[in-house]
Design a protein around this nucleic acid. Structure first.
Lengths: 208, 208
DNA sequence: CTCCAGTTCAAACGACCGTTTGAACTATGC
DNA sequence: GCATAGTTCAAACGGTCGTTTGAACTGGAG
């Protein structure tokens, strides 16, 4: 068996993903990243050019597979006719949550990173996320509007944004410490719970 | 008419609220705050003690009236019998969203600040928010569980966290740039849209 | 071996960070 | 008048930030 040693560039991306996801972009220093990655400080600017370029590369690497899977599933659904809201919601949410529920520790790190970046305080950083996801997200919004003809276009867009937000919050795992503190939600059931919640809201909670 | 000139302490709180809400805690420097407040850098440590203590004071001032109003409405509901889920959801969400919809520019600043702090990357800062809201939030969760006896305790807690998250996201106004870009959601209708969305999810979207 | 592009390194750059100091100013009570 | 407590101020503290520099190392090509 080969030993595919991680390159400095890969180690930097891995650690950046983890630290940016835990502390946010502003709250994470390049020194903290390079120390944890056993790399020199200058390696960031050599391989990426700047702190923000490192973030951009990490965002692209993390979101790429998720959005590709969403595209694949949406293609498949649309090839088979007019998908219903639940199928569309599943096709969008499940690729984002499988990271948390099925990919072990590393997947949870990626998910937290994605969820954090999606709602970073800085508009410029949020747009880094949005630019990466915009094409496929537009397709999902349009498909949802077709699947919910009884609801107004604005209402579907409102529900869609709520779906994006809830997914990001569960990915970032920041709403865990509930007052009731029922312990860590069974990860295997998280996807089903969120899909059920969203389907009900889309089916019964959008204004005419 | 008197001219109630703002004190340095008040100006610092006002500006801190605005800047922390826009850039997050880590992304906002004390110098940026004191310059905008026309105050000396040392005034922060004189009046509050530290940057984090300034944040703590701002959180308390912003959340106090909102949580007081929630408590008042919950007291009133419980005095009149067993409130239904919609009444409880309204009593919780409306005080938080009236800031955005009814209090003009200043209210929107406060709302964005609250929404941002609630999901700050730093656990310590999130707990600042949680500690301020915990007593009343526990009461709401318990009341919701009583109002939804057909749903499991875990399921209601799950829905409750989703409510907290969606409220914070709409308060922070960070999910505005939707891919469809239908323009700024009519603020007057935002509350009704969110309540309808949540009521539907609670009534039809929680596992047994 | 020499050469050279690719990569890593220690060290330093200027800028900005939160915090502290001690003097100066302000208003009120005597 | 003077004393005093409360507040503001310019300046500096040590430390960390992202970035840059130029030399040292690496491994394969000729």
């Amino acid at each position: 068996m080969e030993t595919p040693v991680e390159t400095t560039r890969e180690r930097l991306l891995n650690v950046a993903e983890q630290r940016f996801g835990e502390g946010g972009y502003e709250g994470t220093s390049l020194r903290a990243i390079t120390v944890a990655a056993a790399a020199n400080i200058a390696a960031v600017n050599y391989h990426f050019g700047s702190k923000e370029a490192l973030l951009r590369a990490a965002v692209a690497r993390a979101l790429g597979p998720v959005n590709a899977e969403r595209r694949r599933r949406l293609d498949q659904l649309e090839a088979g006719g007019s998908p219903d809201p639940e199928a569309l919601i599943r096709a969008f949410v499940e690729p984002g949550l499988e990271l948390v529920t099925r990919r072990g520790e590393r997947g949870a790190v990626v998910a937290r990173f994605i969820g954090r970046i999606a709602f970073d305080p800085s508009r410029r950083i949020r747009e880094l996320y949005a630019a990466e996801s915009e094409p496929i997200e537009s397709r999902f919004l349009a498909a949802l509007q077709r699947a919910l003809p009884h609801a107004s276009s604005d209402a579907v867009a409102f529900g869609y944004m709520n779906m994006l937000g809830l997914l990001a919050l569960h990915q970032s795992q920041a709403l865990s410490p509930a007052p009731g503190a029922t312990g860590p939600e069974d990860p295997a059931k998280l996807t089903e719970s969120l899909v059920t919640f969203l389907v009900a809201a889309f089916d019964h909670g959008l204004r005419s």
